[in-house]
């Protein structure tokens, strides 16, 4: 029972953190350099791994579906399957999982170490709210970068599928049929739905990472525990939210 109460308290405190943070939204023009720095850290440095991961997810998807559909002579539908899967589900979910592991963990580690070594207290004594300079630029940066990362992930995933469809003999399709099928099936709405999901997941990953980081007490071991907790909570949250957001968007 105590753990349930503690979990509910944490959810409440996370919401309070978000509300407090967005009270300072008017300071974003003054903090433009921080926003650019966070956008660079979240976006640019994550991009290579998004590209690699998405390419191979698209490839494997094409390989699996192509191999199965070939038995029915339906390999021309590979583009539709890969296109829809990437746009509506795998693109946003995989980018968010990557974000939780790569960026969320780093954000928690940085804020937890600032908390443990009293840097956050020092900010408070200077009358500089930590929500304003530590949380807000990260949350706003993720809202800008998530669509970019997801679109890149989608496009690269589609290309990965196309390469497999065109050049792997056991799949037995071709470049034109793949893209024809993809174009006929994937609607603009599918891409937008995926981007909405990505925005929601990305926002919560960074919010959870900031919340856990700023509430760390203890020393180096507790910083490590916080990083682990941040990644685990984010992963669970992404999958739980995925169900409800998908349901809402259908």
């Amino acid at each position: 029972m105590t753990q349930v109460i503690r979990a509910l308290e944490s959810i409440g405190d996370t919401v309070i953190l978000a509300v407090r943070t967005f009270r300072y939204i008017g300071t974003i023009p003054r903090q433009f350099h921080r926003l650019v720095e966070q956008a660079f850290l979240i976006g640019y440095t994550t991009l290579p791994i998004v590209v690699i991961l998405s390419f191979f997810i698209g490839s494997v998807l094409a390989l699996q579906t192509g191999y199965s559909l070939k038995g029915f002579g339906a390999q021309d539908f590979i583009g539709a399957v890969v296109g829809l899967s990437m746009a509506r589900e795998l693109g946003p979910v995989m980018v968010s999982i990557l974000l939780a592991g790569r960026v969320g963990s780093a954000v928690t580690a940085e804020l937890a170490s600032m908390q443990v070594y009293q840097e956050v207290d020092a900010l408070r004594t200077m009358n500089i709210p930590p929500e304003r300079i530590l949380v807000l630029p990260r949350l706003v940066a993720i809202l800008f970068m998530m669509p970019v990362l997801t679109i890149v992930g989608n496009v690269v995933g589609w290309l990965g599928g196309a390469v497999v469809a065109a050049y792997v003999p056991i799949v037995g399709s071709n470049w034109d049929a793949y893209f024809q099928s993809l174009r006929n099936t994937v609607q603009f709405r599918d891409v937008i739905d995926g981007l909405v999901k990505a925005e929601i997941f990305g926002f919560f990953v960074i919010l959870v990472a900031c919340f856990i980081g700023l509430n760390t007490r203890g020393g180096p071991r507790e910083i490590g525990h916080s990083v682990t907790r941040s990644v685990v909570v984010s992963l669970i949250l992404i999958l739980v939210l995925d169900y409800f957001v998908t349901r809402a968007l259908l």
Partner: peptide, 8 residues
């Protein structure tokens, strides 16, 4: 602060 609490 005793330990400085400088921004590292």
């Amino acid at each position: 602060f005793q330990a400085g609490a400088l921004f590292n």
